[in-house]
């Protein structure tokens, strides 16, 4: 599955390097949502994460000719997403307060019972927003992107011990926040 995706990416990159602009559109389309999720894990704000992602893809377009076909494109892309997002976080020097985020998602017992896919996503994202950037990022790299510890190490430059510890803490913390948010209704998510 993964190797098929990598082959598709390589083919698109070859086309882009030959001057096919629509191939770049396809490549962005394939990776934009997961990349946005990773950037949002760090920056906690979707609008800022989307701005960062625009810069990331412009960088990717400029530097694509330097891409070596030894590693997978997604690993290369996620490394740029993670580095650019952490740089942006440093620039901003402030995190969005959790209180402000609480206002975004107004949870009532009424809408908890009628939890659709979009509502589930909102609650999960709210819980993820309450985690530290490293924890949220590692959870998404491990479970959403289904990467190994080695691949995560390549992307984040974190030590394997830190990755394992933060993943463990992230699991505990997201469970705690989801329980706090949903109480007994957590079973609707599982």
């Amino acid at each position: 599955m993964k190797s098929n995706q990598a082959k598709e990416d390589y083919e698109l990159i070859r086309k882009i390097n030959e001057g096919d602009a629509t191939a770049f559109r396809q490549l962005v389309y394939k990776h934009k949502d997961v990349s946005l999720s990773l950037a949002q894990s760090i920056l906690k704000d979707v609008a800022i994460a989307e701005d960062v992602l625009q810069d990331v893809f412009i960088k990717v377009y400029r530097k694509l000719h330097t891409f070596k076909f030894k590693a997978s494109f997604s690993t290369w892309l996620y490394r740029i997403v993670v580095n650019t997002s952490y740089n942006e976080l440093k620039k901003q020097k402030h995190n969005i307060s959790v209180d402000a985020l609480d206002d975004t998602y107004n949870i009532t017992s009424e809408n908890k019972d009628l939890m659709g896919e979009q509502d589930q996503k909102k609650y999960i994202n709210l819980a993820l927003q309450k985690l530290r950037p490293d924890e949220a990022l590692l959870l998404r790299l491990f479970y959403l992107c289904e990467l190994s510890i080695k691949e995560i190490e390549d992307i984040t430059s974190f030590k394997p011990s830190k990755i394992k510890v933060d993943l463990h803490r992230g699991r505990e913390h997201i469970g705690f926040h989801l329980k706090q948010l949903l109480g007994k209704d957590l079973k609707h998510l599982l």
Binding site: S37, E50, I124, L144, L190
Partner: peptide
């Protein structure tokens, strides 16, 4: 929470870019 359950939950968390993201990006590049 079990590992598989957590995996399902995190996979549901993927967010989508706005509708004009791709067009804006291509315009910026041009």
């Amino acid at each position: 929470m079990k590992e598989e359950q957590l995996k399902k939950i995190i996979q549901k968390s993927a967010i989508e870019t706005s509708d004009d993201f791709l067009n804006n990006l291509m315009h910026s590049i041009e």
